[in-house]
Nucleic acid binder design. Structure first.
Lengths: 333, 333
DNA sequence: TAGATTTACTATATCGTTTTCGTGATTTTA
DNA sequence: TAAAATCACGAAAACGATATAGTAAATCTA
């Protein structure tokens, strides 16, 4: 900038203003400065800018999946990608937040401060981890996904309505003996489970305790085990609802091992609507969660809360899902 | 830091040195300063530090999959995750490099300069894109994955040896009519294809042209089409080798649609060794690419080249793969 | 013991921006 | 036409750290 100012015969302050489109610079001068800057290959230094403005244009991303498998879960990797795209469109880069940077362990909050993140999106973590709570309670704007903190913005997949729709669909196909394999206990699971019971009750379906089995999200092994138990029952369900599409694979193997065919002998549903679910044969009937919308909305809200801290009101945004009708739920008569 | 210096009755310079473990500070003073810093909740400002030292401790990541599906490809998302973990261990954060930050489009190189990345890892992009070439030719240290640039460090999955091993395994199971569905033309594909032909030649297997079909990586549709063509041949292959595990799903559907069973009627192999391949039944025989080692090595090399620019010699590191024996290749006699 | 070296620390400049306040010139207003 | 307002720009400080060069005191050397 100094060089540019010399070449243009103006002060560095003027260059800064011209480049940032400040109104109190003459049109002619500004145009000239911009031209020279382009010609000299000038590019701003984000660090210097961040230092002075106290805005880094950097968003933190706190995404830990417990399995440490990285970004294996398509639902979350898809949210992340969508978040990234929208954030970049709005002029923000993203930085992964982690403890254990360079041996010296810092808390999530410390890492955010170190990198001067303007805001943080939090998903797929243990929301009861004290370090996560500390971060959420700090003055750094946060958006959480699929979990609500008091007076903080959250983006939520509509698990209640979605589960309702899915059960209703299964019911509409004539099923009355519906089993549900659910994931480990989180607020998401609780919502789905409650909605499952409630919808069944509304539809006049009774749900024996042995039709509801616990498993682990994204873990085909545990779903296989649950499936085995369900198939061994005297009064078998006619439809098994899986905690997610990926877990279903485990169930699928079990079902085929018993010599049963989907959907002729037993019907199934998934959850998530990942790409894989639609290339399996039969196509899986599942609940599509709009990860793209969730990620985009998370970025949009976070940025808005950063740019307009005074007027921004924390809110909970619920993103609707949608039943994808595959061919895995047989029509009974 | 100023506050700390006042509280300790020393100068800010002393504080800086004490905190960075500089040798020319008295042990007692340093200890006291560290204690006070901890007590006052001091944390360094990465931007200020970067501004002064010209080192951001930030690594750029250039990862574009052409399908814009984000991080859907498990091989790459796994490399990325491993890279991230190792980079963080070494004290570096990572930043995604992209054009189109905040509307104003910048080149990859410009983005790197803007964020002052100390180095960049490049994978899964169009390596002939002029912007990628510009970045690689710049003074910013780079590491590429599965592609070699002159005088630059590259980490390569050993496609030649791997393909050799895989074909040899299939041959050892008695197969002589082996078809190969390959991905779109990249240097990786060329290596695998060449190795396929060479190994077949060595083993005395002739490969009719119609046994080699093009498809698109990670695209079950195109693999399904290729499979259809192969199954329609008068002289069917006894084994089909797929470009990757995920694509195989498309082939699997086609095979089952024909009423054929894997591996009794036809054998198959995958490539990548993603988690999915091992939960399918039958387990897929595939070639495991060590994505974790690749990512880790990429980070290690990149950081070394940053820390020791004088002595670092660009190199190509080849990471071996490994045949995972599933149950998808039948033993013929 | 005088000079040389080492130790422990400080003063100051600087990294590349932005921001605040000020100023002279020009234009508008009454 | 004199006073007020506006315009276009500059001077200088500041953001939070580090690096360089220097200094006084303590220690060593011959």
């Amino acid at each position: 900038m100094k060089d540019i100012s010399k070449r243009c015969g103006v002060s560095p302050a003027t260059v800064s203003k011209a480049l940032n489109g400040s109104p109190d610079i003459g049109e002619e001068t500004a145009e000239n400065i911009r031209a020279v800057a382009r010609e000299m290959g000038y590019h701003p230094n984000a660090n210097a800018r961040a230092l002075k403005t106290k805005r880094s244009n950097n968003l933190g991303v706190l995404f830990i999946d417990k399995t440490q498998s990285g970004l294996a879960h398509e639902y979350f990797s898809s949210i992340l990608n969508s978040f990234k795209v929208e954030a970049e469109r709005l002029g923000f880069d993203i930085t992964f937040i982690s403890r254990n940077i360079g041996g010296t362990s810092m808390t999530y909050l410390e890492h955010c401060r170190y990198r001067h993140c303007d805001g943080v999106v939090i998903a797929s973590v243990d929301f009861y981890d004290p370090e996560v709570v500390e971060l959420v309670k700090s003055d750094i704007p946060t958006v959480t996904i699929d979990h609500v903190f008091d007076n903080r913005t959250a983006i939520l997949s509509d698990n209640i309505q979605s589960m309702h729709d899915l059960v209703k669909y299964v019911h509409s196909r004539g099923h009355r003996k519906i089993a549900f394999i659910h994931g480990e206990k989180t607020s998401v699971t609780q919502k789905r489970l409650a909605s499952f019971y409630k919808t069944c009750a509304e539809l006049g379906i009774s749900v024996p305790d042995e039709y509801v089995k616990p498993a682990i999200y994204h873990d085909p092994e545990s779903s296989a085990r649950a499936t085995r138990e369900l198939l061994a029952l005297n009064d078998r369900p006619t439809c098994i609802m899986y905690p997610d599409d990926y877990s279903f694979i485990g169930g699928m193997n079990e079902i085929e091992k018993c010599g049963l065919t989907i959907p002729d002998d037993i019907s199934v549903t998934g959850y998530d609507g990942i790409h894989l679910s639609q290339i399996l044969r039969p196509k899986l009937t599942t609940l599509f969660q709009d990860a793209v919308a969730i990620g985009r909305e998370a970025a949009a809200q976070l940025v808005e809360s950063i740019l307009s801290p005074k007027t921004f009101i924390p809110k909970q945004i619920v993103i609707p899902g949608r039943v994808i009708e595959g061919a895995s739920v047989k029509k009974l008569d």
